[in-house]
Design a protein around this nucleic acid. Sequence first.
DNA 1: CTGAATGAAAA
DNA 2: TTTTCATTCAG
Length: 448
Amino acid sequence: MPAERTKRAGRDVPQLVWTVPVEPISIETEGLATFSSSALAFDDGPPPLVDPSDFILFPPSDGCPPPPRKPAHTKKKPEDHIPRPPNAFILFRSSFIKSQHVPTEVETNHSTLSKIIGMTWKNLPDGERLLWHDKAKAALDEHKRKFPQYAFRPNQARSKSSTEKRKVREVGPKDHKRCAKIAELLVEGKKGQELDEAIQEFDKHHVPEVVTRFEAPLTARMYRRSSSAPIPDSGEILKRKKSRSASTQPATPIGSSAKSFPLPETKPEIQPAESFMSTFDQYALPSAPSPSLDFNTFSFDNHSSPLSMYHVCGPLSQPASPMASGDLLFNPTQSNHSNLSIDTSFLDNWNCPSPLSSESSMPATPSFIGSPVPAYNPYIFEDTLAKTFAGHFPAYPNSCEPQYAGTYEAESPSVYPIFDQDSCSQVHMANQDHDFSAFMASLPEYAI
DNA sequence: CTGAATGAAAA
DNA sequence: TTTTCATTCAG
């Protein structure tokens, strides 16, 4: 039975039957919903639900009410394994995928889809989310009835090994803004072809955030905002100067998991592309003033070995700094920054073809409107960077070497570029081994 | 097998 | 508090 995905006309929507215990919901099509008897069981309160005038954004796909007992898990599970009952979100996701609200032209990757669906979920009208919680409850009841003896038994053996040496496939960060846009369009009711068109338009002007192969830039401000950022000691003063851009913080839900390292919860306001752009700009006009940074207050980690590397992509102010004019510094054998050499040889390959021009996982490269002739293409720049670092970057699967795509044991020190938001310049590189708080605390001028 | 999301349930 | 595992399937 074809679900009518041709709604558009506001009305149609099925009246909700909240108390539905078991039956595949009897919502149905014809204009007036018939109330199931159970729904009428209690009339002493307003059914806590949705206005009849509301309509459902994402109607459950028909196979929904019963837990989509699929072909028993592909593998590796005992034949008698009983899966957990699905929770509300899982049900929603499952139905969402089945309905193909997001056409494959827009996104096929399920990790990204999860992100999009998660965002959509949060933006869902409360009433509609309730519907899924209700279904989850029904599924749970059903599950209990079906497997009365069932008890969830998380595999502890797994937890042991996984915390100690976890295999991590580092995957490029998703384009948060694009996901958010898709989610936004979805809750506006756009799906399928309509969504595709809207996103095509969006992609035309949107500079993908994921340009750099480095970790997401971390600014001092973001760091301080981070919930996991340590509260500075009374001694260590962060004079909070009024931040005029405080309101620019996107209304993004509080970050999810507390990672071992305080990454920003939202993408930094400055995008890597923009920062690279500014790098390029500095050739033309010598640089905005950037905050002075006393490198003496911070000691680089001398034994962090293969990754003692500095990638300077913005104007560095430190007048006497050896990096002042540096574009790229890489010196794996030297840990003393006073001896760093500047390798600009990669610039010779400046025009090497971008992988993106041919085929790429990247959405169509936006033409960098506004930038005249020697249009600066950050992708090319990035590609050049990656080549320069090829072999030195075990932790970066997105480097130009495809074999990084696989699973591997993450190398411990990941490198984090630190940007100053105001000057849009990268001021430092840190890895997890550093005492990051101390470093941050040493930079009062970066205080909020 | 992993990653992504959220949430229930267990350790 | 922290971890697993429900769904999905390309990589």
